[in-house]
Amino acid sequence: MKVTYKILRFDPEKDKKPYFKDYDVEVEPTDRILDGLNIIKWYQDSTLSYRRSCAHGICGSDAMEINGVNKLACKVLIQNVGSHITIKPIRGLRVIKDLIVDMEPFFEKYRSIKPYLINDDSLPTHERLQSVEDREIFDDTTKCILCASCTSSCPSFWWNSMYLGPSALVQAHRFIFDSRDHGADERLEIVNDLNGIWRCRTIFNCVDACPREIKITKAIEELKRALLHKHL
């Protein structure tokens, strides 16, 4: 089938401001949005720039705004979007070139919640075991692939880029509720900030955007409750 990609282009080396460019592409209905981008780049206009790597929703490189919603280009089929496809870079992060944004502020927030095991007990001789029930408490938030679809869809983040954002909070949840980890208190203090969990206004854009279907707003609410219980 024939589809039209309308892509927001910007090359800082020669463009004063972003502009839309149209491309007609011949694709299969079962092709991914990413396949169409590749056809454009490889056979029509090699200057088109975007990130992609694994191409099946695991690496999290190709988050972009597709017809108004943040998605991974490799996880959306053409047949589910139709023949007019408008693509823009994800919002709230500086555009470096075309669909490539500066992810550094995003990863800085990720690092700030200490995304690693904190446990000063002496090294065990075997694995630190965990019950199935204990694992289930944070199973959902282990699925995050750091694609930034959620954070860049969040109006609270657009308005205030100091906000930690849903992704960093999902990561905080993943460690705070892990029975093997002892860093819950220090992490709860990090997210207990006007630019932490309290900036979340339960808009649910993040939940719509997440390609891993993580219940993000629920996770953030669980963090709020954990803090309440800790201070009561």
């Binding site: 090359d11 800082p12 080396e13 020669k14 780049k41 206009d45 090699s46 200057t47 720039s49 975007y50 470096i96 070139k97 490539i100």
Partner: peptide, 12 residues
Amino acid sequence: ALGDKSKQFNME
């Protein structure tokens, strides 16, 4: 031959 001669993020 490269179609993209840019210096930044030149994926081609």
